[in-house]
């Protein structure tokens, strides 16, 4: 089971690879759209990559609730198998 720091680190690498945002900018309180400029389609790419990396299902209905990096980290921690 990954720790909160490990999930954040993994997510930061994914966001960096997909959207080209420096990994150190990916912090818990940052909003994907407003702070990190991850658009709706890139968000889907991030979600699919996160599903694979953390062995978790993130349904489309859930994606819109993941406003901040912290929302995504918490969702992954709560739902990863």
């Amino acid at each position: 089971m990954a720790t909160k720091d490990e999930v954040l680190e993994g997510l930061a690498e994914i966001v960096n690879e997909i959207a080209g945002i420096p990994a150190e900018d990916v912090e818990l309180e940052k909003s994907f759209t407003d702070d990190l400029d991850v658009d709706s389609l890139s968000m889907v790419e991030v979600v699919v990559a996160a599903e694979e990396r953390f062995d978790v299902k993130i349904p489309d209905d859930e994606v819109k609730n993941l406003k901040t990096v912290g929302d995504a980290v918490n969702y992954i921690l709560a739902n990863a198998s």
């Binding site: 709706s40 389609l41 889907v44 979600v47 699919v48």
Partner: peptide, 12 residues
């Protein structure tokens, strides 16, 4: 269309 749902299906 529902952009994000279509995008996920159409790609993966």
């Amino acid at each position: 269309m529902e952009g994000q749902t279509v995008f996920r299906w159409a790609v993966w």
